[in-house]
Design a protein around this nucleic acid. Structure first.
Lengths: 213, 213
DNA sequence: TCTTTTATTGATCATGTGATCAATAGTCGA
DNA sequence: TCGACTATTGATCACATGATCAATAAAAGA
């Protein structure tokens, strides 16, 4: 058993390069705070990481700074910048765009750590949480309203509230799974597909069937 | 200004009847923990109540017991025992039953204190939370699947996952409002009606129009 | 091998926090 | 009005917690 083997949790490998150690702490903090909440104690986190509690404060001025780093790590790249463009690409059928978006998006958000830290930070009123939801509203759901309205052949047109309903119904799968720890389908794509199809059907939008995607 | 006026928060009215004081504490604790989370400090709660911190421990053995009382207060009567019966009463049109249920239910759950304590307790893995969701699953959504399947004239029949999608989309309104503190419609009944109608339409169930209810 | 550098530790501080208990002071019955 | 009862308080304890810092030891260069 090599004492310098990074993958061995038991080996007392002190003196990591600072950037590496910092990343290790952030990764551990994400897992730790996702599990126990943002009020988790620094001593418990340190034990979980196999380092001393005082070392945390060499890399982060205080606990608040550590939590900010956790937020940054978790929120970063959660909304891919290419989606606003792809969602309005009318060369692709609307249904395919919706399914492609939610297939990718659900992969990103139906994840234990994201779901729980997002909820914890939401309850705590974190600024990043607000900004994320505003971004989602403006860059994703807003354009989608236009797309669906344009594609609708019915007199009934969706508004933002309808879009949030579609979105919420899908996100709720992840909430049930990771917040409430309820038994959920291992693969949510079928449920998502049905939800999207019900939504489009309500606005009389042709559906190409599941073979299309 | 009468010194014995209970409604006056400034009057130093000591010595309440124990049952009254206990209820006052529980009510205050519900509001307090809903706001700051279950890790809120007993000294802050006491200050908020205008009593001393030590008095809390005269009415509750420890903080855990107080939180259990908060759970009990908030969870109690949240699922009316008459709904399982009313939801399967086929003398009433299915759409009306669904709308009546979600009209009542949303009144109960789209409430700051319930929403947040439900979420806090869910994240904490509280047993009451699990039981509540199991009850909802078995006594409300389960029967609804049968009702909708029976009413459906389409070959497409909903399953539990579809019902959870309908439910989640509606509940998500309250999450947006009280967890994420996003701007939401003051009256959610229209959004609920639309969600229910889209759902029923997907299973080819006649809709009596909004005049019916 | 020896020296320098610095990542890491262990001890410690100041304050916060749940909980306890004797002392105090409302309230009610006689 | 007076005494008994007890709801309430204020002081306090034991421990937890975020944060600090001098001492230590792992790594790199000469």
């Amino acid at each position: 058993m090599n004492k310098t083997d990074i993958t061995d949790p038991k080996a007392k490998r002190r003196r990591l390069p600072p950037s590496e150690r910092r990343q290790q702490i952030v990764d551990g903090a994400v897992a730790f705070f996702a599990k126990v909440g943002l009020e988790g104690k620094t001593r418990d986190l340190a034990k979980h990481l196999g380092i001393t509690q005082s070392l945390l404060f060499k890399y982060f001025e205080n606990k608040e700074a550590l939590i900010e780093a956790v937020y940054a790590q978790v929120y970063i790249d959660r909304l891919s910048p290419e989606w606003p463009r792809r969602l309005i690409d009318r060369n692709v059928p609307l249904r395919s765009r919706l399914l492609a978006f939610y297939r990718d998006y659900s992969k990103l958000i139906f994840e234990y750590e994201w779901m729980r830290i997002f909820m914890f930070s939401g309850l705590a009123g974190a600024e990043l949480n607000r900004r994320y939801l505003e971004h989602l509203n403006k860059m994703i759901l807003g354009p989608l309203v236009n797309e669906i309205q344009a594609a609708s052949s019915s007199s009934m047109k969706p508004d933002m509230e309808d879009l949030w309903n579609l979105h919420g119904g899908i996100v709720y799968i992840g909430i049930r799974q990771h917040i409430y720890r309820m038994p959920c389908p291992e693969d949510p794509s079928l449920a998502i597909e049905h939800a999207v199809d019900r939504f489009l059907q309500a606005f009389s939008i042709e559906q190409n069937g599941s073979a299309n995607l």
